[in-house]
Each structure stands twice: as C-alpha cells, then as structure tokens.
C-alpha cells in the first residue's frame, strides 16, 4: 500500500505473515475436512478423521441425499423463491428510500428517526409471530420475504453514499431543469452501482442463509427452505445414537450431513468471488461517512 520499496523484511512483517497464514489454515481445514468427509465412505471417515483427499472416494452420500429428492428440491425451491423476490423488492424499496432520505424535505427528520428506531427496537418474537398469524401469513413464502425485506443499516449507508455524490453534479442537473426522479435515474443510480451491487449480494446471501424466521413462521407447514432442511438433517443424524432413527441416516450420518452442507453452501461459494470484488468498496463508502 505504501509506495516506498522496503529493502528487507523485518520481524513484524514475518510474524504477521506467519500468523495470518496460520489463521487462514485454521479456518480452511475444518471446512475442507467437511468437503472431504462428504466424498468418502463412512468407514474411511471413521478410520481417518482427517485427510487432505477423500480416502475411499464415493458419491454415495450425495446419492442418499438425492434419494430424499422431494424434500431437498422443495427446500431449494423455497429458498430460491424467497431469495429472488426478497432481493428484488427489498433492494428496490431500500434504494428508493435511501435516495429519498439523502435529499431535503419537510418531515425528513421525523421519518428518518422512525426508521432509525427500528434498528434498535422491535416487537420481539411473540408479537411479531402473532401479527403474521393474524395477517394470515403463516406458512407462506411471503412472510419469509417480508420479514427480512429491508436492512435499515444498509439503507443508511446507501443514503450516505447518495449524499457523497458531489452537490455540483446535482445542481448542474437541476439548473438544466431535471426533476428529482430524473436526477435519481440519470445521475444518482449509475454512481451508486457498486454499492447497490454490494448490498444486493448481501441480501442474496442473507435470504439464502435465513433460517430463524422461516423456522418460526413456516413450522408445521409443508413449505421449507434449505437451511431448515439442513437443520432437520443435522438433528436427525445427531439423534442417531439415542433413537433407532431412519435407516439411511444411520448408515451415513456424518457423510450425508457434510454432503447436505456442501449442497447448501455451493451457491454461496459460487457468488462469493463476485461478492469479494464488491464488498470492500461498498463497506468503505459506508465507513468513510461513519
């Protein structure tokens, strides 16, 4: 980062490098271990708790998982529906709101405070559950979409992003007679693309990973999402020692768990490289203003 060339490494730099590499390995190994276990027989997994490559390669764990076909596909369907609609609707109203709050209008402070307050205070589990129940939203995808629709924190950072656009740009457009909406679409939106991309990706990952509210709002129904499916697999496999359990679970406890994990994780791994490209930029825009 600093332009000057260093002649030689000093102790701090060597220790830093060693420590960071060590930490990275500590993060990487359990993760890799899970992938390896999912690809080997349960006998091999029991014999070699850790290996860099699958010792007795098999896709059986994935086959068993797929044999549950219906449940996994139903869970994928649920997660995909929630993610797509949640991100599209959520980002649209967040960006609009962020832009609105970046400009001046009577009552802005009141509305902003109302929004800010919900960042730190909400109705809590029972009241929220009861409201969704009263609105007839239990066991619907709609409930899971609505509950995580907006992140106020992200809206505030995007609002700061809009505020950081030089006033001259807006004033020039105003002088040219451009209206608020035109300024929004022609100037503000294109300038905020990286930030919007960042938060869209965050929203995708957020919906993909959501399990708490789906668990609360969709329990007892026939709808599911991936994380809940994973939880059910983990829990059923975990109880194999006490209860007799389902035969397929008994045969390949850990292997199938890890296969399920991999299936749930895969899409995140695919979008992650794109995410990485954007998030630092996005976070920095927020951080500067903060």
């Amino acid at each position: 980062m600093r332009k000057k060339q260093r002649k030689k490494l000093d102790g701090v730099q060597i220790i830093s490098t060693v420590l960071v590499v060590a930490f990275s390995l500590i993060v990487f190994i359990p993760f890799w271990n899970a992938v390896v276990i999912s690809l080997e027989t349960s006998a091999a997994a029991a014999k070699y708790p850790f290996s860099w490559i699958p010792m007795e390669f098999t896709l059986e764990n994935y086959a068993v998982l797929m044999a549950k076909g219906g449940a996994l596909m139903e869970a994928y369907k649920g997660t995909i529906i929630i993610t797509i609609f949640g991100v599209l609707i959520g980002m649209t109203i967040s960006v609009m709101g962020a832009y609105g709050f970046s400009r001046q209008f009577p009552g802005k402070k009141l509305f902003f405070r109302l929004m800010l307050f919900t960042m730190f205070f909400n109705g809590g589990l029972v009241p929220i559950y009861l409201q969704y129940k009263n609105m007839g939203l239990l066991n619907t995808y709609t409930a899971c979409i609505i509950i995580d629709l907006v992140s106020v924190y992200n809206v505030i950072i995007m609002k700061n992003g809009f505020e950081n656009v030089p006033m001259e740009l807006q004033e020039a457009a105003m002088i040219d007679g451009a209206q608020d909406m035109l300024i929004f679409f022609k100037i503000m939106l294109p300038l905020q693309k990286p930030l919007i991309a960042t938060f869209s990706l965050f929203a995708i990952v957020g919906y993909w990973n959501s399990w708490y509210w789906p668990m609360m709002l969709m329990s007892g129904g026939n709808k599911s999402v991936l994380q809940l499916f994973l939880r059910s697999i983990v829990n059923s496999a975990g109880s194999e020692k006490t209860a007799s359990g389902i035969a397929s679970v008994l045969i390949s406890g850990d292997g199938m768990k890890m296969a399920a994990i991999f299936m749930v994780m895969l899409p995140v791994m695919i979008v992650y490289p794109f995410l990485q490209k954007y998030f630092t930029k996005g976070i920095m825009v927020g951080a500067i203003k903060m």
């Binding site: 609009m96 209008f105 929004m115 907006v150």
Partner: peptide, 15 residues
C-alpha cells in the same frame, strides 16, 4: 418534494 415522499413511501409503509 412530492417525488421524494414517493421514494420513501414503500419503505416507510414496511416500517
């Protein structure tokens, strides 16, 4: 500021 109110309408409705 009518368009600005329109901008914050959906988010405020959700809130």
């Amino acid at each position: 500021a009518k368009y600005l109110y329109l901008c914050i309408l959906p988010i405020m409705a959700w809130i």
